[in-house]
Amino acid sequence: MGLFGYVSRRLVYGLLLLVGVLVLNFFLIHAAPGDPAQAIAGEMAGANPKVLAEIRTSYGLDKPILTQLGIYLANVAKGDLGISYYFNQPVITLIAARLGPTILLVFSSQVVALAVGVAMGVLAARRPDGLLSAIVAVVSTIGYAAPVFWSGIMLIILFASVWPIFPVDGMTGARFEGGYLAHIRDILYHLVLPASTLAIIFLAQYSRLSRASMIEVLGADYVRTARAKGLSERAVMFKHGLRNALLPIVTVVGIQFGNLISGALLVESVFNWPGMGRLAFESVLRRDYPTLLGILFFAALMVVVANILTDISYRFVDPRIRIGRH
């Protein structure tokens, strides 16, 4: 089975997983206490039993739960995620407006965590018993143990109160004026603290993992042979060492993507970042079931796609792996 067949098979598995996620989330959300009709009616003084009954009929909430599930799955298959109870807009429209900021936050923090974490791990692996290795171990342990919302609050205190360098609210300035490039700079300026907050915990994991993996690889026979041939330390570390140490790191990147998404939801709430996390928070408070289900669906979709891309990347990181045999 070639790459195309493997990807096709993984897509089928991913589709089945998404259906399972939809069904599970549907039952969990509808099992939560509270009446969505009350949330739709809001604080209207005229929200009497007759009005509530009309709302339930209008939104199909009076139908049996299995019937509601069947209707919902059929609509999702057609690309219809329903209408938001609170915003009274198509859920797909709401998510499309918030998806870009979330993807920007997630991928920028992932790039920072990978680049800095792997660099720290490689430097620490050169002298496992040295001072730098000990510093990396301590820093990574603190970063891994600190809750993401606590790290965000500490960065806000440090860089908004003690040293007011970066903005801590929103994605752009409230009174921003300028051209396209200035707009991009403003977004990146606002991105620094949220992306750093989310990157800290994953940077800690990647640095520890890359350090351990590099120490193991540098003790292998082929590395000793490379050094015996007179290759430079740079060539030994990066061409023979890092390339072979990347496989477990790539594996963890794929596994941790779900945690990255959930961490992004918390970071967006701390920094008022206009992504899906902020929308999810508002939907929970307002019992906006269709919007919340749509957000969970897109989060699961991002995780499935990330895991498929991770599996495919094995073939390029380590040519000895043949995807078709798995």
Rank of each mutant, 00 (worst) to 15 (best):
M1T: 04
L3P: 04
L3G: 08
V7H: 04
R10W: 00
Y13E: 03
L15D: 00
L18K: 03
V21H: 05
L24Q: 10
I40H: 01
E43H: 10
N48L: 13
K50T: 15
L52G: 08
Y59I: 00
G60W: 11
K63I: 07
L66V: 15
L66P: 11
L69T: 08
I71S: 15
V76K: 03
K78L: 15
G79A: 13
S84Y: 03
Y85S: 00
Y86T: 12
N88R: 13
Q89E: 15
P90I: 05
L94K: 10
S108T: 13
G121R: 01
L123E: 11
L123S: 12
L123N: 11
A124T: 00
A125H: 02
R126K: 15
R126H: 14
R126S: 08
P128K: 10
L132N: 00
V136G: 01
A137K: 07
I142Q: 06
I142R: 08
G143S: 07
A145W: 09
P147T: 12
F149E: 01
A160W: 07
I165Y: 11
G170N: 01
T172L: 13
A174S: 10
G178L: 13
A182N: 12
D186C: 10
I187V: 15
V192P: 05
S196M: 11
Y206S: 02
R208Q: 09
S210Y: 02
A212Q: 07
A212N: 12
T225E: 07
T225Y: 12
A226I: 02
R227W: 09
S232K: 10
K239G: 04
G241S: 06
V250C: 10
A264W: 05
A264L: 05
L266W: 12
V267R: 03
F271V: 10
F271T: 09
P274G: 06
R278C: 03
V284G: 01
L285M: 08
T291R: 00
L293H: 00
L296V: 04
L296T: 11
A299S: 14
L301A: 14
L301F: 09
M302K: 06
V305P: 08
L309K: 01
S313A: 13
Y314Q: 08
Y314N: 05
D318P: 12
I321N: 02
I323L: 14
H326K: 05
